[in-house]
Each structure stands twice: as structure tokens, then as C-alpha cells.
Amino acid sequence: MPQRTVLIVLFDGVQSLDVTGPLEVFAGAEKQWPGSYRIRTASLGGAPVRTSSGLTLVPDAALTAEPDPHTLLVPGGQGTRLPDPELTEWLRAHGPRAERLVSVCTGAVRLAQAGLLDGRRATTHWAYCDSLARNHPAVDIDPDPIYVRDGHIATSAGVTSGIDLALALVEEDLDRETALTVARHLVVFLRRPGNQAQFSAQLAAQTARREPLREVQRWITEHPDADLSVEALAARALLSPRHFARAFHAETGMTPGRYVDRVRLEHARRLLEDTVDGVEEISRASGYGTPEAMRRAFVKALGAAPAEYRRRFRPTAPAR
């Protein structure tokens, strides 16, 4: 088995969990398969860095002293808001030499500043997707997934998604059982699909200002198996369907249909993760009606059928 060097770039203002989360995943895999990973941290000049939370990290070496790694990982944090021409130049020169280029959270900003994401699909923390797209129009920003793979480049969303991505890379490098064991030790899921949304429908959508629309939002969440057509929801809000659809979108930033789709998907996911109910029963409880309708929704949104999704979260649970 070839040894893969993972080099994690450190800088002042880095988010500590962006560093330690993936590092713990790769270190856990190394404990199971000695010699599988060589994990290094480095900063410009080899100087200690202060994280955004005030923690001081002491790197293994200076970036200029490290050979080109297999995996070059760039974390995010408040420090990415400040220009760093020297680090940008180092990434521009050495990023293309890595076999795998990875960013966590706003580490994607550093990669974009170095021109390494031009013509690529990428993601970052949802709060910075708009500014990244605006400042780097050559990058195809997808604000929804928790991580995105485009060739040898992988970018992930906020903080804990770096763990999800690292687990996916370990599974790819070694095997699923190794990644599952690491996930169990870290008490995290193996593994959230990369194209799972960064946040729930309730968080993705704004809370409506008017009480009738807020009540409709609550009703949808509590009754995913009900008739949630625009006509039925408009009747609950005492509005015409046309007025309701316009008002709902204006106040939540999301059409009623899209909101319903997200709520039903989340409800089905929770049942698959937390219960042993069968797919047919879950499809009815979540408002899909049939297993096939739920399967299409899962494949479209998550890239995995319900049975496969359940296996990822509950490997010992019956697919049913």
C-alpha cells in the first residue's frame, strides 16, 4: 500500500476544527493501517499560528521545506478574509503539483485566489458562497452540497463537513470498513453524502414575517404526509393560490413546492437514520406515496437510493 502524505496548510486566523477534524480522520486511519498516511502541518516560515479561537498551533515545518504531497489540504477561518500574497503564490506554485487538492470551509477562498478553482465546480461555507462567486466568476460555485468533487480537487462547506470529506477520502484510499471504524471512534456518521444540503429546509428558508405563512411553515414540517399542494396550503393561509405562492416566496426566499420537497426529504432521512421502518412505510409517512417516488427524490437530491442511504448511516440496519 503506497503511503500518502497529507500536508495541512496553517496560517494565522485558521479555524482550528478545519485543521483538527480532517487530521483526526487521517490519523485514525493511519492507526489502523500503519504506513498509509504521513500527516504534516506547515506554515510560512514554520512559525506557530494563532487560530480564530485563540488556540496556538505549532507546525511541523515551513511550507518551503516540505516536498510536494499527495494531498494538500487548505483549511478555512477568519484569516482567509485578509490577503496573503506570499501564501497565495506558494499555493499557485505548489497546488497543481499535489495529486489531490482539498479545501475545508473558506479554504476555498485561498484556492480561488491562487487561480486553482478556475473552471471548476466548488463549494464553501454557505455564508461565503455569494462573495466567492462574485469575486471569482470563473469558479462554478454550488452553495448546497456539504462537499464537491471535481476531478482531483475537493472542496467542502463549513467546519464539520471537512470531517465528512476526509472520511470519504479515507474510504476511497483504503476501504469502507476503515472509514467506518474512524467514524465510530469520532462518534460521527459515515457518511453524509457529499451532495446533502448544508442545512435544513427550516434553516435554508427564512421564517415568514406574517403569522399565517409562519403557521403554514409549521404545518408543512409537522404534516409532511398531508396534502401540501399550493391550493391546500393557500386555503390554510386564507389566501388565493396565486397570492399565497408569491407571498411565500417573497418572505421565505423559497417556493412552496421547493420547501415541501426539502421538508419531505429531511423527514424521510430522519426515519431512515433513526428507525427500522420499511421504505414503503417511510415513503407514505413522508408524503411520497410510493417507494419509487421517494427513490427518485433521494437519487436526485442525494445521489443515493433510500436503501443505500440507510446503509451509509446504519450499516447493520435492514434495508427492508
Rank of each mutant, 00 (worst) to 15 (best):
P212W: 04
G303V: 11
R218G: 14
L117K: 07
C105T: 02
R209L: 12
S161A: 13
S52W: 02
G77F: 08
T207Q: 14
R312D: 07
S161D: 04
R312Y: 11
A268V: 02
S103E: 10
P2I: 11
E89L: 09
W219H: 15
E177M: 02
L271N: 02
S16G: 01
R97L: 15
V276Q: 09
V148L: 05
T178Q: 00
A93T: 09
D118R: 13
S161C: 14
Q113G: 09
G28N: 08
L165A: 06
E308L: 12
A197W: 13
A208T: 04
R218Q: 13
L265A: 10
G107W: 07
G278L: 00
L233G: 07
L82A: 12
L91M: 08
T51Q: 01
T123M: 06
G194S: 13
L271E: 09
L302P: 06
T181H: 12
L7H: 13
A183R: 10
A237S: 07
R120N: 05
A208W: 06
W33S: 10
A112V: 06
V299G: 07
G28E: 08
S156R: 03
G54D: 08
S200P: 03
P224H: 08
A108V: 07
S286I: 08
L91R: 00
A197I: 03
L44H: 11
L167V: 09
T252L: 12
S283E: 06
I39G: 01
F199H: 14
G303I: 04
A47M: 09
P75T: 06
R50C: 04
A208F: 04
P137S: 02
S43M: 07
V263G: 04
I141M: 05
P96H: 02
P193Q: 07
D164P: 02
Q202Y: 08
A247E: 15
R270N: 11
L180Y: 05
